[in-house]
Design a protein around this nucleic acid. Sequence first.
DNA 1: TCACATATATAGCGATCACTACATAAATGC
DNA 2: GCATTTATGTAGTGATCGCTATATATGTGA
Lengths: 199, 199
Amino acid sequence: MVATKKLDQRGRPRSFDMEEAVHKAVRLFHRRGYDAVGVAELGTELGIKPPSFYAAFGSKAGLFERAVEHYSTSDANVFGRAQASGGTVSEVIERMLLVAAEVYPEHDGVAGCLVLDGARNSADPEAKAIIASYKKASRTALRDFIASRYPTKAETLADLVVIALEGMSGSARDGASAAALKSFAEAIGRAFLREAKQG
Amino acid sequence: MVATKKLDQRGRPRSFDMEEAVHKAVRLFHRRGYDAVGVAELGTELGIKPPSFYAAFGSKAGLFERAVEHYSTSDANVFGRAQASGGTVSEVIERMLLVAAEVYPEHDGVAGCLVLDGARNSADPEAKAIIASYKKASRTALRDFIASRYPTKAETLADLVVIALEGMSGSARDGASAAALKSFAEAIGRAFLREAKQG
DNA sequence: TCACATATATAGCGATCACTACATAAATGC
DNA sequence: GCATTTATGTAGTGATCGCTATATATGTGA
């Protein structure tokens, strides 16, 4: 049973590019949130009509899940970006906050973090579950990273950072400037050091 | 023309209590956000049928405006509550953060701040405008209060507090515990003192 | 008593929601 | 050629959205 798996490409081929469609969906969901983006608009913006849309993604929530997954494995993942440059735990945290201060303000009509704010006030249980899953995973990764250096204060320090990022994302979506977010990020970075080393 | 204005109570009287209806609307909008609460649900929960609803409030956004106004003049206004007890600027700020840490976690299914999060991701321009107006007024009041003691750093310090409160409200809506919000509030209180007196 | 003013209940408006039934088009394997 | 497989376009599903037209009920002032 070492049969070579022929991925048979039978049937009519897709008339649109999946990756490009998901990328456009990321921008729409990120800009306005899950509920405010309708399937009709997604269809016209992505150039996909309803039957093809549902054949490809299953549902609106299915596309949202793909969009969130695409988003959180991109440069928008501020924790991943900050970790990539190495350094101490506090250096990475400070860098993450500064990266967020650069990324979160409005760019091309999009502001804040899709994971933190993309399903806020949503009435859809699926969308909320998808976001809750990603938030929990992110928080766990961040807490474990902090615990590698500050094991007894990891929870409190993780709360400090996560709540701060929530505030930065929400404020950015309300129009906060890059300068305001930067000074906030710097203050939280100093607070992190202070809370980590004292008390 | 000093005619005594007789507020004539002519016509059929209301069959519901306006204040009680607004209070119920506050809870619904606060719990789920503006868009996720429909007029049909408001009607059944408030015991008001459509024509009476529109005669009394004009529109869904009209009721929302009344709800936000009622909310922000209640005990939910953490800045007002913190100011009421007096003290120095930094004492009031620290107290406000601690009050928010008590008020924002879920109580009776409601979490966070209606003003900060009630119209998040809303597709309705009216609701967004109402919230934007209240946010701007709150921020201005907070900044002016801080400026009375720290005039050169008022903007930066106001950003610190406002973005922190945004984070606390958003996190509370995601299920953050009172303990987590309290430790965050304490850390931000220390950060406020530090940023105000140094640098 | 009766006009007037206001609020009510019944019923339904057009628009939009996420989603689908159905027939057809376009590729492959034999 | 021809069956099979997959994707497509046309058209429309029932449900819900915020809101309203119309007639009736219930109060006041004269």
